[in-house]
Design a protein around this nucleic acid. Structure first.
Ligand SMILES: [Mn+2]
Ligand SMILES: [Mn+2]
Ligand SMILES: [Mn+2]
Ligand SMILES: [Mn+2]
Lengths: 242, 242
DNA sequence: ACAGTGATTTTGACTACTCAAAAATACAAG
DNA sequence: CTTGTATTTTTGAGTAGTCAAAATCACTGT
């Protein structure tokens, strides 16, 4: 009767996958879903047909899949559990932000409402997880803010890292080493289209270079208020979100 | 490759079931295993044969099942996770001792070694869980102490509750209300074989009666050292184990 | 219009776990 | 012995999820 872990994973991945779609598109191709879940394409097709039967997704053969309202609500609660757990592991258990994703991936399916509420309360009803991802509300409401990336933001202005859209531990440690955790300040010195690279100046005034691929994974807040509110200069560790 | 939750549950239940066997017996009847797991008898038989195939249990048809050394080791790590999680939920998350069992029942299958070590460390390598159940060591070592019960312990001496062998929330709350949590002191005033009841005097000097069935679920430490070390008189809440 | 290519769906099969009901077994009493 | 009862095992079947490989479809370029 409660949705299985498998169903929860499919719905979550549909939600995340649709979010990564090029502007305009709303249907996630089965191939992308399958590879995100690490299953064979045929498996995803079969499963999605069952989910459509249950009214959790809309499925258009050969076009792709999208969440229904019910599916979105469920995906949001899974995401809420995942992200609250991640933040809990970092904030309370003292784990590193690059090692919490795998644990959360399993815990998200078993933490009870009682426990997740307790965690939420203990953390003071946080709005984002350690990677800057928004934490859906208790009733399945998700407010996704729109951000620029280090590839698209204005050059020469101080911007604040808001979100890192890659869970790979190696990448996360790299990000941390360069002072690019959510809450930290950085500015784009220059962009070189040909070299496919971005010149950055961190809070410690050191400059370094990022490839375009990596730069596009760093979402930044370009509003002046954000830069003003951010930890002025002694930002060695990331400032906690709020 | 890692054991499934199902396998972990079977092994854990075999361990606990064998422990509850009448003195002398070492083989857990299939019927008991099946009902402990809430599964049909035939299901248990099939599963146990598979576990025997994997070398985790010894199975004697029509006689019952018992853990091998490998099976014991695995059961111990599951029990370790279960009990550390329970204590964590009480001590760190502030949950009540009567509501943690269900959460632990699910979490025991998904907490990583990293996380469980962290919990263990955070709790100061505790030896018992909130119900007085011993927490197996990291390497699968279990030291089960032998205890008397309120049905068998000497009359008139102060004894210390060591362990409560029933997870039912209603019973646990009853136990708490009467000051019988692990660590608390009590003494048997009298036993009435005919009435099937035990007269008790709690730390607050109030007396009350327990049926034999309930009394036998309260394991007590009868050594004088235990009574001396226990919270002398102002024992309103249970003293933390160590 | 049409062949080629890549994505998607279908098919057939397999694993893990489960149940209900029938068959077999153990054991205690007569 | 022999029968009755309770327990256990066997049988047949079903669900959830998965894969490999064959079949189908959509689309691109000619
Ligand atoms: Mn994550
Ligand atoms: Mn995250
Ligand atoms: Mn428990
Ligand atoms: Mn316990």
């Amino acid at each position: 009767m409660p949705p299985s872990s498998t169903v929860e994973n499919y719905l979550k991945e549909v939600y995340l996958g649709v979010g990564r779609l090029p502007a305009g598109a709303t249907l996630l191709p089965m191939g992308q879903l399958a590879s995100a879940l690490g299953v064979a394409p045929g498996t995803a097709t079969t499963m999605v047909k069952a989910l459509a039967e249950s009214g959790l997704v809309d499925y258009e053969p050969y076009n792709g899949v999208r969440l229904t309202a019910a599916g979105t609500r469920l995906a949001a609660t899974v995401l809420r559990r995942h992200r609250l757990v991640e933040l809990f592991l970092v904030q309370v258990m003292g784990m590193r932000w690059d090692e919490v994703h795998d644990d959360a991936e399993h815990l998200e399916h078993v933490v009870s409402d009682r426990l997740i509420d307790r965690i939420d309360e203990m953390l003071g009803h946080p709005e984002t997880d350690p990677h800057g991802d928004p934490i859906p509300g208790k009733e399945g409401t998700i407010r996704e803010r729109h951000f620029e990336t280090l590839l698209t933001c204005p050059v020469g202005t101080r911007v604040v890292v808001a979100r890192v859209s890659d869970q790979d531990p190696v990448f996360l440690r790299f990000v941390e080493r360069h002072g690019l955790k959510p809450g930290q300040v950085v500015s784009v010195e220059a962009r070189d289209e040909v070299a496919d690279a971005v010149q950055l100046r961190g809070a410690d005034d050191a400059t370094f270079t990022l490839g375009a691929r990596a730069a596009s994974k760093l979402l930044v807040d370009v509003t002046p208020e954000a830069a003003a509110a951010a930890t002025p200069s002694s930002a060695r560790d990331a400032a906690p979100r709020r």
